[in-house]
């Protein structure tokens, strides 16, 4: 029982990071109809900036803010400088450009910072709380959960309670109609990229301290799992990303704890396969595809 509680709580924290990263993929898919395969590389580039700021200032929080700002700026730069010029007749050209961007970014980061792992210290202890002899969430995992919940809540408020959010959603559903109604659709696409990459950078920032360390490829596995999560939840569905992220995080934790760590990715793939067979649009499939 103790083990189950521990695995559930750590799976919850892991799932929150997965959900955040999957949410970032959903945001950019909705905004630009691009599966951004460069999301992990872009997020890690932002984490390197956060690492440098923290190293220079001694403040984790300054690094966090700098990393998020870098993610947003990188998102805007990639959208305006690259993706906007890619044909959008199908999602394929954008995906190919994104894969090319992965190579450029990871090679560039390797040249600039070297391929070695750099230790990033978490701002809080990773030792689990002891509740009546049962190990549960560590302070850092609690921090991850709180930050993830705040960011998801903030994004939900932004999308559902503000004019910017409404215009972002309208642009995603029907860009041409939105343009006729005075919505600056290109600007909405840029904002979508900024939000998306900043969210991905946050997820990577939260994950890296718990992994082997920072290196140019540190978020690759996170991307693979989060992409699976986004597809399981439904690429168009923020709620689906959240639910699937938590579910997959807990599933991975349980399989790791009760079977083996190497079986966890297989369990995720099994769920992904089942969802694709039974509900190809994802568990929380959007009602209708984008229209003109």
């Amino acid at each position: 029982m103790d083990r189950l509680v521990f695995l559930l709580s750590s799976g919850l924290a892991r799932g929150a990071v997965l959900a955040l990263f999957a949410l970032s993929l959903v945001i950019v898919w909705r905004a630009a109809r691009v599966v951004n395969f460069a999301q992990a590389a872009m997020a890690i580039a932002a984490v390197y900036v956060a690492f440098a700021i923290t190293a220079a200032s001694g403040s984790y929080w300054l690094g966090l803010i700098g990393g998020l700002a870098t993610g947003a700026l990188l998102g805007a730069a990639v959208e305006a400088g690259l993706m906007r010029r890619v044909p959008h007749t199908t999602p394929l050209p954008g995906m190919i450009v994104a894969i090319g961007l992965v190579m450029i970014l990871q090679s560039g980061l390797s040249i600039a910072f070297g391929p070695q792992h750099r230790t990033m210290r978490p701002p809080f202890s990773e030792r689990p709380f002891d509740l009546g002899g049962v190990p549960v969430l560590s302070p850092y995992e609690l921090f991850v959960l709180v930050v993830a919940a705040l960011v998801m809540g903030g994004l939900a408020l932004l999308f559902n309670r503000t004019s910017l959010g409404l215009q972002l959603r309208a642009s995603a559903f029907a860009p041409e109609t939105s343009r006729l109604l005075g919505v600056r659709v290109p600007r909405m696409v840029t904002v979508g990229w900024m939000l998306s990459v900043a969210t991905a950078a946050l997820a990577a920032l939260l994950l890296v301290p718990t992994e082997l360390g920072l290196n140019p490829f540190a978020a690759d596995l996170l991307f693979v799992n989060a992409f699976a999560v986004a597809v399981i939840g439904g690429l168009d569905s923020p709620a689906g990303a959240l639910a699937a992220g938590i579910g997959v995080g807990i599933l991975s934790s349980l399989v790791t704890g009760y079977v083996s760590a190497s079986a966890a990715p297989l369990a995720v793939l099994a769920v992904l396969t089942a969802v694709l067979l039974l509900r190809p649009g994802g568990l929380v499939a959007a009602g209708k595809a984008r229209s003109a």
Binding site: S163, T177, S178, V183
Partner: peptide
């Protein structure tokens, strides 16, 4: 202001949200 031949509504949004899209502040 113009209406469109094919309605051009956002089916997934609520009636109020559809009407608010051209406005600047919810």
């Amino acid at each position: 202001a113009r209406t469109l031949q094919g309605l051009g509504l956002f089916e997934q949004l609520s009636v109020l949200e559809n009407v608010l899209v051209p406005l600047s502040s919810l």
